[in-house]
Design a protein around this nucleic acid. Structure first.
Lengths: 214, 214
DNA sequence: CCATTCGGTGAACGTCTGTGCACTCAACTA
DNA sequence: TAGTTGAGTGCACAGACGTTCACCGAATGG
């Protein structure tokens, strides 16, 4: 609960190293503090205290809490995108796209719970610029999924517009699933099993659907 | 931006009436202030100032901002449930469940934007008790939809467990759609058109799906 | 080795926060 | 009509807030 203690000098540490270490401590502290409420409700002074540094030192790293938030969004999605590359690289070798992908996503949520919790909260309740950044990142992922679906030929009878809508449907669903995994980690197995069935309903169904005029 | 002005006496107004009027003003002020951030980020004093009342007067109506939040959840879902009764009462007379229901939901979101915005934010970022209250309300609605689907016989080959999952899938989707309508009211027509197609993909597909063993 | 850079310090400011307390005075009740 | 109730007041407090500024001292680089 107290200070993280970033103050002690470490041997053989360059000045840039140390700055990076403090920066990390600030990011982690903000992530931890926001977990009990949200970014807009925490204070620069709380973050500084948690890090074990004087309030004004904060400004050496971030101009404001909002900019810190944008850095956290960046960090979260950098990791998320690496995971998705993995999912998409491995997807073809699975008989079932669903059984292959969902557990990987769940694993990533488990390993990065605080980041996902941050995204889930700030996506709807964060400062406007943070919300916008998150929305944009999710949109990029949706587009990638759409081109991937098109390339896979799994939806040959879909118009490209409808492939986009299908991708959006899937991404929205996975976002909802991730929110639930974050909110109640103890029910991961059940949440995952249910999501598996639901995604099957959605896909088995959707793939029998045909694009038609508006 | 300034005070709402609840101070002036009104003729022929009972004491209870006046208390209720102030209570309403507090609820509205909190709703308006939270719109620019969220419940956990606003202060009792801001609310009081907005209402045009002294800070301590707040306590005559709510023990804390969190309890005020629970009252707003209650109010939001009371209205929402009335709307759903309407949807479900009228649903059978529409050739297409989707075309009948979605516009009614969209209309309700438009007419109660601040309440929906509040729910969308606090659902993931609110105080724990508020989050829990919202989660519970949504779960109740999901259950009602499930019994309604079962009663309609539209999913005869579904197990009751899977009907529950289908209902959850639909509710989650509509929640996502409502979030988007709130976030970007100007794109209502497009959002609605896309949601229509997506729900069709989901349902046309899902209804061709069959329950099987786990 | 000397000058510079810069992450972190500590005091100070004006403002805002939640909440306690004693109060008023119009609406209510008996 | 006399007495009670209770929504709203006004003041006061101690603490937290963001931000400013001059300052330090170790790592850095010429």
């Amino acid at each position: 609960m107290g200070a993280t203690g970033v103050g002690e000098a470490v041997d053989g540490e360059t000045r840039a190293d140390r700055k990076e270490r403090t920066r990390r401590a600030i990011l982690d502290a903000a992530l931890a503090l926001a977990a009990d409420s949200n970014l807009a409700a925490i204070s620069l002074r709380q973050v500084a205290k948690q890090v074990g540094v004087v309030p004004t030192a904060f400004y050496r790293h971030f101009g404001s809490l909002e900019l810190l938030g944008l850095a956290l969004v960046d960090e979260s999605f950098r990791s998320l995108r690496l995971m998705l590359l993995d999912v998409w690289r491995h997807a073809p070798e699975y008989r079932d796209f669903i059984d292959g992908s969902l557990p990987i996503v769940a694993q990533h949520v488990r390993d990065n719970r605080s980041h996902y919790a941050f995204i889930a909260r700030e996506r709807t309740a964060g400062p406007p610029r943070v919300r916008e950044a998150i929305r944009h990142e999710i949109e990029l992922i949706t587009r990638e999924l759409a081109t991937d679906i098109a390339r896979s030929g799994a939806a040959e009878h879909y118009s490209s517009t409808d492939i986009g809508l299908l991708a959006d449907l899937i991404v929205s669903f996975v976002v909802t699933m991730a929110e639930r995994l974050v909110e109640d980690p103890d029910s991961e197995a059940r949440t995952l099993a249910e999501a598996r069935t639901q995604l099957r309903m959605l896909l088995v169904g959707a793939l029998s659907w045909r694009s038609r005029e508006a």
